[in-house]
Computed example of a mutant assay.
Amino acid sequence: METTITEAFDAIVTKLKDWLSTLIEYLPNFGLALLVLITAFFVAKYVNKYTYKLVSKKVKQESVAQIISRISAVVLVLLGLYVALGILNLSKTLTSLLATAGVAGLAIGLALQNTLSNTVAGIVLSFRKKIQIGNWVETNGFSGEVIDINLKEFVLKEADNNIVIMPNKMILENPLKNYSLTTKMRVSIECGVGYESDLEQVKSLTKQTIAQAFDQVESEDNVEFYYTEFGGSSINYLCRFWIDAESMLEKLRAKTTAIIEIKKAYDKAGINIPFPIRTLQFDNKLALENSEQSKEISEN
């Protein structure tokens, strides 16, 4: 019994001596690995701040700038961990960690496929110079001012002050019309005048009215005027001109001003803008006579 206890004690002491020898042997490597991790941590903090400042100059969305700076910091820390494990000769452990991370990443990617696609789309949209916060755009059947682009959604404010929230991937996968990329917009006015009107006078008066109402229209020659059809109660025309504008609200205001000024000018000149008229004509006299005869018979 005493022999067994002695052998067990000797085995424990031998094992502890082996561990101590291994610890002393790998102590420089352990210290160097720890130094690498600490250095990577502090460098990652500096890189995080520097990347945030650099990205925020090009991207107005704070959330996007933060995620990019954090990703760069995490990558640097992982690189430090990789070097530290290499110093400790733990290549097998490193391989196992990478394999586990790969499997876990695949599972998480499949589970969060839509979320990740919106996140990637948000980062891509943030770096697109042709789509900026404050632009007036039209996409997916909605039109409004871009008020936010984050990692999840694309936010518009319509002309009636309603907020439209769309997933980023819808913006990236569908056509988008950006009115703010150009400094000019064309305003179109469709109207009609009575058949008794002097068409040359109508044309001249309309172009003159538009040229006087807008400073951007240099002369009457810059106003397009075309008669389009003989309508049911009027001769219809199309009038077009360009204004300096970057949003649909400015275009709507200009169209409103043009309609008001044209109406004033027509009223002053006695030009009629007719409304639809329906005339009922009864030509079947036989039907009327039969109706009157039937009425007389019923009275008798």
Rank of each mutant, 00 (worst) to 15 (best):
residue 287 A to K: 11
residue 250 E to N: 04
residue 93 T to I: 10
residue 64 V to M: 03
residue 254 A to R: 05
residue 294 S to A: 07
residue 1 M to W: 05
residue 253 R to M: 04
residue 238 L to V: 01
residue 298 S to I: 12
residue 40 A to W: 12
residue 207 K to M: 12
residue 286 L to S: 10
residue 194 G to D: 15
residue 171 I to M: 02
residue 166 M to A: 08
residue 20 L to Q: 12
residue 206 T to D: 01
residue 232 G to Q: 15
residue 244 D to K: 00
residue 44 A to C: 14
residue 273 I to L: 10
residue 135 N to G: 10
residue 137 V to P: 01
residue 201 Q to P: 05
residue 213 A to L: 08
residue 296 E to G: 01
residue 128 R to W: 04
residue 227 Y to S: 03
residue 250 E to P: 02
residue 158 E to K: 05
residue 263 K to I: 09
residue 153 E to M: 11
residue 132 Q to T: 09
residue 74 V to M: 12
residue 147 I to Q: 10
residue 113 Q to K: 15
residue 248 M to D: 00
residue 268 K to C: 03
residue 21 S to I: 03
residue 43 V to K: 14
residue 24 I to G: 09
residue 270 G to M: 04
residue 188 S to T: 04
residue 170 M to F: 05
residue 133 I to P: 10
residue 257 T to S: 07
residue 96 S to A: 11
residue 89 N to F: 12
residue 180 S to M: 01
residue 3 T to S: 11
residue 204 S to N: 06
residue 33 A to Y: 04
residue 245 A to Q: 04
residue 210 I to N: 02
residue 4 T to D: 15
residue 171 I to D: 00
residue 191 C to T: 04
residue 4 T to L: 15
residue 133 I to R: 11
residue 66 Q to C: 08
residue 238 L to M: 00
residue 139 T to P: 04
residue 100 T to I: 15
residue 179 Y to N: 03
residue 11 A to W: 06
residue 203 K to M: 12
residue 207 K to S: 06
residue 239 C to I: 04
residue 268 K to Q: 08
residue 54 L to V: 11
residue 57 K to E: 14
